[in-house]
Amino acid sequence: MTTRAIAIAVLLFLPLPIVIVVLSSFTSAGYLSFPIKGVSLRWYAEFLGSADWLKVLGTSALLALIGALVSTAASFAAAWAVVRHEMRFGTTYETILLTPLIFPHAAIGVIMIVTLSGLGWLGTFTGLILVHCILTIPYAYRPVVAALRKADPALEEAAASLGARPWRTFWLVSLPAVRPGLVTSLLFSFIISFDEVTVTMFLVGPFVMTLPVQVFSEVLESASPIIAAVSAALVLFTSLMVFVLDKVIGIQFFVERD
């Protein structure tokens, strides 16, 4: 009985602050308070009318898209070597790919400052792409390697024995077999990259800024309800991604072990 009570309380507790942010974005007041004083869409109008916010939104979306594509492709190649070529030390290599996960984010932030300033990419879009690829590889690798392990190599052998060239076999047989895994990797790393703050905020500069980092610095400095409207847009975006993920692979993917 206590188990049930705790579980229900937790399941209501988790979405609570998100719901509050979304509700508070509809305030008509000039300052943030809850419950809200009067309903209006003025802060959404302000958000969508602001060239600065839209530019930052565009940067975040492009960054997440490129990062997701690169880290999914890199993960797919690595998974191919580990699974299809049954390479030596495959498990060790998989552990190495997951190492960014066991580093505290504040430490990764400083590591990346050092790395990017060494490369001369601090405060640049290219630098952010590089860092986001490193951060999302652990998330992109798992779905793709799981899909590849499930796909039957006999199909590829059949295609090859029927005379298909390697590239044709790859396009028409191998790739479709792992498509759900690839889409999951793309979406998953896209979300992680799009929402990343803790590491990214060390690396942005006057010429490049991401949406969550911008929201964070605004929250520290002001209490304008426009932050709530931008946050609500982030929430809407994340819900869309979760909806698509659920359709593509099913939400239970996140709690499955391979």
Partner: peptide, 28 residues
């Protein structure tokens, strides 16, 4: 599962900000 996964994937900035709105001096 959705009630767990969805909040997990929402940016930590948004979630922490939600607590500011709840716990703040003019909050809930």
């Amino acid at each position: 599962l959705l009630m767990i996964i969805f909040p997990w994937l929402v940016s930590i900035v948004v979630r922490s900000y939600g607590w500011v709105v709840i716990l703040g001096p003019r909050g809930l």
